[in-house]
Structures are given as C-alpha cells and as structure tokens.
C-alpha cells in the first residue's frame, strides 16, 4: 500500500506534511536555542539550580562581576516555587469562579442571557495580558494592600509587605485563566447528553444534586481540559504577573501561614521580564535563558501529566459518595 501511494504526488498533502515538519523543526530549534544559551548556567549549577535560593542577589552579583570573572552561580528554587504556587492558587480561585459561572450559564441563565455571558467570557479570554497587568497594578494591588496592617507588617522582617505579592499575582492570574476554564466548562456542560439530566430527575434528584452528582462528573473531561489550558497559561504568563508579583524570588514561607500570601514572589516567567534590564551581562543572559529552559521543561512535564490526567478522568468515575 505504501508503495502504491509513494509515487503519487499530492500537492496539498505534501504541503501539509511540509508544514507539520516545519512546526516540529521550529520547536526543536527553540528548545535547542534556549538550552544552548542556558548551558553555561545549567552546567555550572547542575541540580543546584533547582534546589538553591537567592536568585535576586545572584543576579545583582552577576551584573557587577568583572567581565574576566563572570559569576555563574544561580539557584532558582524560589522562582520555581513562585511559578507553581501562583499557578496553583490561581487555579483554585478560578476553579471556584469558573465552575460556578459555567453552571449559572448552562443551567440557570435564560438562553439570551447565557449567550450574552458566553460572549463576554470569550471576549475576556482575548484581552491582551498587559491590560490585565495594568488593571492588576491599578486596582488589585491597592486592594490587596489594604489587608496589610501594622500588625501583619510586624510579623515579617525579611522584606517589606506591599500590595505586590503572591495574592495579587494569583488574583490577576485568576482573571486570566478563568475565561478559558469557563469557556471549556460551558462547552463540556452543554455537551452532556440530555438523557443524563433526565436520568437524574427520573431518580427524583433535586436540580442541585443533578448538577453536582451527574452533570459535573459527566462534564469532567472537558472541565479538566479547561484547567489544563488555564494552568498552561498560568505557568507561562509573564507581563501581567511581573507587574504585580513583587519581584523577589523567594519561596513563600509557610511559617507565616496566611500572611505568606502577602509576601512577594517572582515566577520564572516574570523573572525573565524583570531581570532583562541586566541582560547585557552574558552571565545574566544565560541565567534568564535558564529560566526559559526551566519553563519549557515545566511546560512539557505539565502537558504530559495533563495528558495522563485527561485519560484517567475521561474514563474515571463520579465522586465518591457518603
């Protein structure tokens, strides 16, 4: 069969294959480029890059180090923690908002209102991130700043508490992730066959129970896909987060409890933006490319895990009872 088609020339098919090939080559090229640029820092630090802290100070030292004796020691544990924690919190926030919104749109809102709401949500998903950043800096940061009272300030001594912190970054990220999650959740809920609803009602279940016990679990693969896309955006989002995150690359300290929400963070993506002013120094440049490399790895690992999760959930079960 291969032999037969081998000598037939399909221009469109060829073009499409060429396109696919170009895509793969481009991705490989990006990985190669980033890793080559990051290599001096990666090879110098090894696994320490993932474990050690003190990125802010290291960047400053690298910037002032003499050209003949570049400083290549970096530890990005704080940045990785920043990325993961902001994304996680944003996912939790947007989970609550999104599922509530999606249920309202699909199950409670009358049709015209529902389609208007969907249009608004889709529009929100297309707002450029810098706009979210500006709104964050002008509204969210002063809002969060109100929570920082004198008593709270006294608790933390390593740095100043301002409205630019983990909470602000997570809130801004929430509003960026939520539209994606809502859109996909709405699609998933709409695609639940009517028969599942009828099944629930025929068992004498209340509307709330039908939604929570039958609709949501049935729509779970789509909702999970929404969260995965949202998390992808959360991990990679740079501009908006860099404007509200506080810019200090430390691991949120659990000993502060909820106050650790008010401490500054510096996710990997925001670090690339924030520290780019010092990029004229080759060591700093390499360190920032190492941030990029970590993001690529994180993104890849995440999408593999996500793939696995989707497979699990699409065949899995409804939530445990009792």
């Amino acid at each position: 069969m291969m032999k037969k088609t081998k000598f037939k020339f399909h221009p469109v098919e060829c073009l499409m294959r060429l396109g696919a090939l170009a895509g793969i080559v481009a991705i490989l090229f990006i990985f190669a480029f980033v890793f080559i640029k990051a290599w001096p820092v990666i090879s110098h630090n090894g696994l320490g890059l993932l474990i050690n802290r003190g990125f802010d100070k290291q960047i400053s030292e690298a910037f002032y180090a003499p050209v003949s004796d570049p400083m290549l020691t970096f530890g990005m544990a704080g940045l990785i923690a920043g990325t993961l924690v902001t994304t996680l919190i944003a996912l939790i926030f947007s989970g609550i908002i999104s599922i509530g919104s999606a249920i309202t749109i699909c199950e409670f809102a009358p049709r015209p209102l529902a389609s208007a709401l969907i249009a608004v949500v889709r529009l929100m998903a297309s707002i450029p991130s810098v706009v979210f950043g500006l709104i964050g800096a002008m509204l969210v940061v002063p809002f969060v700043d109100q929570f920082i009272t004198l008593d709270i300030e006294k608790v933390v001594s390593e740095f100043y508490l301002t409205g630019r912190n983990l909470l602000s970054a997570s809130i801004v990220l929430t509003f960026m992730i939520a539209p994606t999650v809502i859109t996909l959740s709405v699609d998933a809920l709409y695609s639940v066959p009517d028969i599942y609803r009828e099944t629930g009602y025929a068992f004498g279940m209340t509307r709330f129970r039908v939604i929570s016990r039958i609709l949501l679990p049935s729509a779970r693969p789509g909702i999970v896909a929404g969260f995965i896309l949202g998390a992808g955006r959360g991990i990679g989002e740079a501009i908006a987060v860099s404007m509200v995150c506080g810019g200090l690359g430390m691991i949120p300290d659990l000993k502060y409890g909820f106050i650790s929400l008010l401490t500054p963070v510096l996710p990997l993506s925001a670090a690339i933006i924030n520290k780019s002013e010092a990029m004229s120094v080759p060591a700093v440049e390499s360190a920032l490319f190492a941030c990029g490399a970590l993001l690529l790895v994180l993104g890849t690992v995440f999408s593999l895990v996500a793939r696995f999760l989707v497979k699990r959930f699409s065949s899995g079960g409804l939530v445990n009872e009792t």
């Binding site: 028969i195 099944t199 004498g204 279940m205 079960g317 409804l318």
Partner: peptide, 29 residues
Amino acid sequence: RRGIGMIFQKPNPLPTSIMKNMTIPYLEH
C-alpha cells in the same frame, strides 16, 4: 419520581463505574 422506575430507549448508564451506577440513586435517597 423515586417511586417510579424509568427505563429509556437508549441505555443511559452514567459515565462512571458499574457499581457506582447502581449505588448513586440509592444513596441519594
């Protein structure tokens, strides 16, 4: 409705395990 069983034209098991399909309506009420 709880007192009346209903069987639909198309089999309508919920997208979950066999056992949970059986127990969900029961434990609901």
